[in-house]
């Protein structure tokens, strides 16, 4: 079975994002870019399913600008068999991303599609659910455990009330939560090997995706700041301070 993994490049989670003074966006020149942490987890899960003999091939896909190639090579170095790069310089929104991934599904016929539950730049948390709807297949979001048995998969999901387990028939879309696994580190020889793995580029326009970019962002603002408060020196002072604020 084939597994398709969404592998998006985002601003590294360690970067402190700054809003441009004119409100036109966030400062992105020169900032470190990395794979979305949830997508590394998605890829790791796919690789483990291949190592268990459940999957035979793992494909990483990204929709992004021309310079995403190095990013995809990282996915190949981690262990994916091949990569697909849908090239667009536009910042596409989740509905468009889902429609694009659906085109790749039609082409590749994977049994499992694994995406991150959210990309840490826009924090939309939409793409996997939209893709499952358009594909008319099950979704198992926020996965912290994945068990494939025959033609179905049991997924434990991190939900507000606790841990929910559902069973879905394949093919299906899974989105990853943080505790699903710990992604492996890339080793140097793997980076060399990755250079010769297949990386297919497809022009976004060639897929004739109907755009779902209906939203317009007009202003970026820094969040309301919380300011540093007072320091107290012991527990008694803390209790007094809480009482003053009417909190006790």
């Amino acid at each position: 079975m084939k597994i398709l993994v969404g592998y998006k490049r985002v601003v590294d989670y360690n970067v402190r994002i700054q809003v441009k003074p004119d409100g036109s966006g966030v400062v992105s020149d020169g900032v470190k870019l990395s794979a979305n942490p949830f997508d590394d987890i998605a890829l790791e899960e796919a690789l483990r399913l291949r190592e268990k003999g459940i999957a035979t091939e793992v494909i990483v896909a990204t929709i992004g600008p021309a310079d995403c190639q190095a990013h995809l090579r990282n996915g190949l170095a981690m262990g994916a068999n091949r990569a697909i790069h849908v090239v667009t310089s536009d910042a596409i929104q989740p509905l468009t991303a889902a429609r694009t991934l659906l085109k790749l599904i039609e082409k590749e016929q994977p049994q499992i599609v694994i995406l991150g539950k959210q990309a840490i730049d826009d924090d939309c948390n939409q793409t996997g659910q939209m893709l499952a709807a358009l594909w008319n297949r099950p979704q198992a979001t926020f996965a912290s455990k994945v068990d494939v048995t025959g033609n179905a998969v049991r997924v434990t999901r991190e939900v507000d009330a606790g841990l929910e387990t559902i069973e879905v028939d394949l093919p299906a879309v899974i989105t990853t939560d943080l505790r699903l696994n710990e992604p492996r580190f890339i080793k140097l020889p793997d980076i060399m090997k990755a250079k010769s793995k297949p990386l297919e580029t497809i022009e976004f326009a060639a897929l004739a995706v109907e755009s779902g970019d209906h939203l317009k962002t007009t202003n970026y603002a820094p969040p309301a700041k919380r300011s540093r408060g007072v320091m107290v020196k012991d527990a008694a002072e803390l209790v007094a301070a809480l009482k003053t604020k009417g909190l006790l």
């Binding site: 994002i17 809003v19 966030v26 962002t217 970026y220 603002a221």
Partner: peptide, 8 residues
């Protein structure tokens, strides 16, 4: 971005 920017 984890609440580091608010967009309209």
């Amino acid at each position: 971005y984890a609440g580091n920017a608010i967009v309209t």
